[in-house]
């Protein structure tokens, strides 16, 4: 397909490497450009509405034009647009949110650590578990068990927890955590044997220290 010169589609194809996208097909077909949202609907650049039955990526719980969130962001941007939380620093939104989450937790929880994405959160969980067992003097107790078809993110460590084959192409993602030969073999054969049995999660060991 040829795109209108300098159109958003042409510029997208020229400059943007898209996540979870077939890059060669994208060069041919170009992007689907979403321009605005309203409730459960999003609208493309031709004005066509779509009922967004995935809430984006399983995530936009309140739909696509919740004004209260716009105001909350604007108010905070005006007050304190950025500050960090290293070295004993704190700010009220962080304190309030930590307290709120602990109160909402399904079981008694003690502390909250914040990140920016699910991948980072699971990455942090791995690191904290390793830290925890080092602190207890159990230096060998480091392996994670995750499940075939489980999805826990795409950063190197969290991807090693993810049990979908597309996230482990043989040529990539050989992290120190997931690439001991035996683990790789186990994982590959488990996928081959069980890939089609979608309703029966299986086990696999990963993340050797």
């Amino acid at each position: 397909m040829s795109f209108q010169p300098n159109s958003p589609a042409a510029r997208d194809v020229a400059y943007f490497l898209h996540p979870y996208t077939n890059a060669k097909a994208h060069e041919q077909n170009g992007p689907m450009i979403i321009e605005r949202g309203e409730g459960v609907y999003v609208y493309d650049d031709a004005g066509k509405p779509y009922l967004e039955a995935m809430a984006g990526l399983w995530c936009a719980s309140l739909g696509f034009n919740e004004k209260r969130l716009v105001k909350a962001a604007t108010d905070q941007l005006n007050k304190l647009p950025y500050y960090h939380t290293f070295a004993h620093k704190a700010h009220l939104p962080g304190i309030d949110l930590a307290e709120k989450l602990i109160k909402l937790a399904p079981v008694p929880m003690s502390k909250v650590f914040f990140c920016s994405s699910g991948s980072e959160a699971n990455d942090t969980a791995i690191k904290l578990v390793w830290y925890y067992n080092n602190a207890r003097g159990r230096h060998a107790k480091k392996k994670f068990i995750s499940r075939i078809k489980g999805y826990h993110g795409v950063t190197i460590a969290s991807a090693s927890l993810t049990g979908t084959p597309v996230n482990h192409p043989a040529s990539t993602c050989r992290s120190p955590a997931s690439s001991t030969p035996r683990t790789r073999t186990t994982t590959a054969s488990a996928w081959k044997a069980r890939a089609r049995r979608s309703s029966r999660p299986a086990w696999r060991p990963i993340s050797r220290p």
Partner: peptide, 18 residues
């Protein structure tokens, strides 16, 4: 661990509770 609907995804944030 949680993310996504934590902020309705209007801005990126995730949390790890221990």
């Amino acid at each position: 661990t949680c993310a996504k609907a934590l902020s309705a995804s209007y801005l990126p944030i995730s949390a790890v509770m221990i």
